[in-house]
């Protein structure tokens, strides 16, 4: 009887340890949660890829250092989430002057300069504080998405589903937070301290 009890307790203890490590100490249960927790614990630089915006200007992600940058990943044909993200950025542009807003398209097959331009116009991106961009070189896309931890999957209807979130880079260009875009007031509260520092 004691042996059975001992064995059952051992199993329970081992399972607790395994579950603890699988959930970062019972904090996260999804890959998205783990991605956000990892960034909070250990901020890191995104790869210094070259982007091209809606006006055809090329710039490196590096060149934005010294500013607080908010990045969303989108594709311009997206009827749902990206459109909502666009609206969020439009409101952020008014609420948080001084931040750089960057909408990066991962659909580089389809999104050329004209498509970026159209997305920018329909959401009110000015091309200065808010730029809609895409990686210039196709081979840069993978490392950029991997660096941010974004997974894009085809939805079977010619579109995509992807982690919808706002990625916050601090003044040193480090990815320090990954935030929900809803509710907006919480997002603004989260970003504001980084603007002061």
């Amino acid at each position: 009887m004691m042996r059975s009890l001992f064995l059952a307790l051992t199993v329970a203890v081992i399972a607790m340890a395994v579950f603890g490590s699988a959930t970062e100490g019972f904090r996260v249960f999804t890959t998205e949660g783990a991605r956000r927790y990892a960034v909070e614990q250990a901020p890191h630089q995104l790869p210094a890829v070259t982007l091209e915006d809606q006006d055809g200007r090329s710039f490196s992600l590096d060149s934005l250092q010294g500013r607080v940058v908010l990045i969303e990943f989108i594709y311009t044909r997206c009827p749902t989430v990206c459109s909502a993200l666009g609206d969020v950025f439009a409101r952020l542009a008014r609420a948080l002057p001084g931040t750089v807003l960057l909408s990066i398209s991962f659909d580089i097959e389809h999104d050329g300069r004209a498509e970026l331009r159209r997305y920018a116009d329909s959401h009110g991106a000015d091309g200065d504080e808010w730029r809609v961009a895409r990686p210039v070189h196709g081979q840069d896309l993978g490392p950029l998405l991997d660096g941010a931890g974004v997974v894009v999957i085809a939805d079977g209807w010619g579109g995509y589903q992807h982690n919808a979130a706002v990625h916050l880079l601090d003044r040193h260009g480090r990815l320090v937070r990954i935030l929900d875009f809803d509710p907006l007031s919480v997002l603004i509260d989260e970003v504001t301290p980084w603007l002061k520092s």
Binding site: S4, V11, A15, F19, A22, T23, F29, T30, T31
Partner: peptide, 29 residues
């Protein structure tokens, strides 16, 4: 039979191992 009289430890193991693969993160991994 000696080490697991009523099969409790075995069923517990099965239960917890199955629960691990019910975590969305495990499925992604």
């Amino acid at each position: 039979v000696i080490w697991d009289r009523f099969g409790i430890a075995g069923i517990l193991t099965a239960n917890l191992a199955a629960a691990y693969w019910m975590l969305p993160r495990s499925l992604d991994n």
